[in-house]
């Protein structure tokens, strides 16, 4: 088991596939996540591919304060992802709930629902920071080694 884990970690480090999920963001961070794959930043030159299905994803990029409507969906997506999986919370809302913390329809940051490995604060986060967060998430060897809140 350990060997398989090591092998898949080695492989995903070469060409990680990222999945983006908007858990109730204002669209600002989401646009910057898409910006990462466009010519100026071009995440694809590192082998990073943005794709649709959680079953193929290595890294989950989450934006937004989690709303009650998206909470179950977020959990579902996380569970569908294969091991080893990494979660990046992009934006202040995703880290702590930000300006929407305390709203009746918001549960708070991403870590209130699923474990988060890397936190990227900012409103909105710049694409450079997202790229560096992806790189950092992939360098993590074990679960629980990531950012502490």
């Amino acid at each position: 088991m350990d060997l398989i884990r090591k092998a898949s970690q080695w492989a995903s480090g070469k060409s990680p596939w990222i999945l983006h999920f908007n858990a109730g963001a204002c669209n600002g961070c989401d646009i910057e996540v898409v910006d990462c794959v466009t010519p100026r930043y071009d995440l694809e030159r590192f082998g990073v591919v943005k794709q649709g299905s959680p079953r193929h994803a290595d890294v989950l990029i989450c934006t937004g304060a989690v709303t009650l409507q998206t909470r179950d969906r977020l959990k579902q997506i996380y569970e569908q992802m294969p091991e080893p999986k990494r979660v990046i919370a992009v934006g202040t809302c995703a880290c702590t709930g930000g300006v929407f913390d305390g709203c009746y329809c918001v549960t708070g940051g991403i870590d209130t629902v699923i474990p988060v490995d890397v936190y990227v604060p900012g409103c909105a986060v710049r694409p450079d920071e997202i790229i560096s967060a992806v790189e950092r998430a992939l360098s993590l060897k074990t679960d629980g080694e990531g950012d502490k809140k």
Binding site: A25, C26, I31, G64, T67, T70, V99, F100, C103, C105
Partner: peptide, 30 residues
């Protein structure tokens, strides 16, 4: 799915604080 209840949030904060929330209604047409 994206309902965050920001109209209610605005009512419990001052106008200056609301400006910050209203800007985050949408990141594209802030």
């Amino acid at each position: 799915y994206n309902h965050r209840g920001l109209e209610k949030a605005c009512e419990s904060r001052t106008y200056v604080q609301d400006l910050y929330i209203v800007e985050r209604v949408c990141g594209i047409c802030s």
